[in-house]
Each structure stands twice: as C-alpha cells, then as structure tokens.
C-alpha cells in the first residue's frame, strides 16, 4: 500500500500542472505585500547585474524601481530577482511575480498568452553584426562568403539564414554553444563575424583584449522590441505604462532627478506641461487618484529613478563601458529621430 502511494506521488510529480489564469487584483497584491516582485536577467552587463552587495543594478532594474516608486512611493520597495529567460515567463504566468523587466522581445505568440501582458517597450534592440576593424568591412552587404559565429540553438540562427538568403549571399555558420569557445572563435579569426543582439554585441566587445579593434555594422536584421511584462491587471498595466511616459516626458521637458526640487519649488513659473506633470491638483494628481498611486507619483519617479535619458546614460551611455550610441537610433526620443514617443500627460 505504501509503495502504491509512493508511485502515485512520483507519477503526479512527473506531470505538468497547468496553472489557472486570473485577471485583476495584481495592484491590490502589490499594495498588500508592500513590494513589487520584479524579474530581471541574473547576469547581463549594463542591464542587470548584482553589485558587491548582491543588489541588482542596471538599465532594466530601473523600471522595477520606477513601478515601486509610483505605486508604493519608494523605489527601494522593488524586490528585484534574477531569473533565466524562459523561467521568467513561466513565473509570471504562474503568478509568482508581478512584472518582468528582462529584455523580453514582444512577439505575437507570446502576447497571445493570456497569462501575461506586454506593457511598454523600454528598449528597441535588433540583431546585428560585429567584425574586426582590420577586415575593412563597412556594411553587412560586403559579407558574402563570410563565416558567422552565433549562439547554438538561438533564434539568431534563423535571422541570419533569412537575411543571407534574402540578400542572395553565401555564408557559413559556426553555431557554438559554449560562450567562451564562441568568443575565442571570433577573436581568433575562426569566424569573420559575430552575430547577436546589438546590446549583447556591445557587452561582448568588452571581452576583447582591445575592444576598439572591433566595430558594429550599421545593419540591423531583426526587430527586438524589449518590453516590460506584467501580470494581467488593467490598473497595474496602466500604472506601469504611464510611469514610463512620466520618464519620457521628464526627459523632453528637461526635468531631471538633480533639478526636480528647484522645478517643484518654482512650479508656477514653469511651462504648462511641467505643471501638469508635477502639480498635485493637475493631470498627474487626477491619475494618481484614479489608478490608486501615491499622490506625488510623478515626482517620486523622477526624484528616485530619474528621467529616461538619465537612466540610459547611467547604465548604457558613453560614460559606461558598454557605450551604446543613442543619438540617431531607435532609442532616442521622437524629437531626436528615435521611436520613443512621450504620450501627453493631461
């Protein structure tokens, strides 16, 4: 009898339990627990890496902090947890976390999953190529016949195959699973080209003996809109979406974490848009009441986290090792030729 019970237990453990999907109540859960559980990549230089105290730092972690500042008034109430890629989506669907800010590409099939909602794109990435400078290649169209290194099993392989076939060019692929073997293959010239997401290439370049010996080609062969993912709940999703708009608007209006106290002290003499963004009896205040955010949520986001430009410069900009150019790319504000379009707060 005992062994039968054991057998049943093991058999049950073998099976996959489908989780129930419920909508709503995420906002209440965040407030009840006084924390936002936010999933990030455990090791992605510039985007999320643990510091010497074990606290995650990076571009992606700032959006966890943004959400906590808006809903709970304190950015440090974001409980940031590192987790692998496919597990992060499973964790959201299983309702064990509130949101994920870990460079998840928004795709149609993923969005069709009722267990998670894609809220707003924080970074427009794309797959590109890196080559040694001495090769003299300026454009990927000159790569006919080249050997391309890529991660084994990744969608990168598909994009390369599509691109070279579409452009009617020959190539040879080296799909190497082990990262150090892959990087060595590229740096030793076994491959002419390394293909990956632009952001990954920027951080991989740092592994070279002389990073300046390598250049990223301007061609972007796939669209990777890296998007914040939330557990489905209209109020929660709206809060995240507009918090992000606050960061974009603040950048356009020149409000930073440094100058915000002066701006607020002299609010009456500011442009109308700034007054609507930061005044308590303005559009922002109305939104706070309707969505259940802290009264001065927009102030808290900018004060504690900063505007989008500040966050970008701090983690990815020219002052950092990653040095990912922003001007003229998709990740600039619309006013600078990018795709980031600040929605009106009014």
């Amino acid at each position: 009898m005992k062994s039968t019970a054991k057998l049943f237990a093991v058999a049950t453990a073998l099976t996959i339990t489908a989780s129930q999907v419920q909508a709503g109540a995420v906002m209440d859960d965040v407030k009840a627990n006084d924390e936002v559980i936010c999933l990030v990549n455990p090791n992605s230089p510039g985007f999320s890496v643990p510091d010497s105290q074990g606290v995650f730092q990076g571009f992606n972690t700032e959006f966890c902090r943004m959400t906590a500042a808006a809903i709970l008034g304190d950015a440090d109430k974001a409980s940031i947890r590192g987790i692998g890629f496919s597990d992060s989506m499973k964790t959201i669907v299983a309702q064990k976390a509130h949101m994920a800010s870990r460079s998840i590409t928004r795709t149609g099939t993923r969005d069709a999953n009722p267990g998670m909602s894609f809220v707003v794109t924080t970074f427009y990435d794309g797959q590109g190529f890196m080559v040694p400078k001495k090769l003299g290649v300026k454009n990927a169209s000159e790569l006919s016949g080249a050997t391309v290194c890529a991660e084994e099993g990744s969608t990168t392989l598909l994009n390369i195959a599509d691109w070279f076939t579409d452009n009617d060019m020959q190539y040879k692929v080296e799909n190497i699973n082990d990262k150090s073997a892959r990087m060595q293959a590229f740096f030793s010239g076994k491959c002419d080209v390394l293909a990956s997401d632009l952001t990954a290439l920027a951080s991989d370049r740092q592994l070279a003996k002389t990073p300046s010996d390598y250049v990223l080609l301007p061609n972007i062969i796939s669209n990777e809109p890296l998007t914040l993912v939330a557990r489905p709940d209209t109020a929660f999703e709206t809060a995240i979406f507009w918090s992000f708009q606050v960061m974009l608007n603040a950048e356009r209006l020149g409000v930073t974490s440094e100058n915000i106290d002066q701006v607020v002290a002299d609010l009456d003499n500011q442009p109308k848009a700034v007054q609507r963004l930061l005044g308590s009896d303005s559009a922002a205040g109305e939104m706070a009441t309707a969505l259940g955010l802290v009264d001065d949520w927009s102030y808290q986001i900018i004060k504690q986290v900063g505007n989008y430009g500040e966050v970008y410069d701090k983690h990815l900009g020219s002052q950092t090792a990653l040095d990912i150019t922003r001007d003229g790319t998709f990740n600039a504000l619309v006013s600078n030729g990018g795709l980031l379009y600040p929605h009106p707060i009014r």
Binding site: E152, G153, E174, N175, I176, N177, D178
Partner: peptide
C-alpha cells in the same frame, strides 16, 4: 560537440 559548434544530432 555542440559546445564547440559541431552539428551533431543533439545540436
């Protein structure tokens, strides 16, 4: 073999 980019069955 998949560690070093050999296209075997598992890779």
């Amino acid at each position: 073999g998949l560690a070093v980019g050999f296209s075997d069955l598992v890779s």
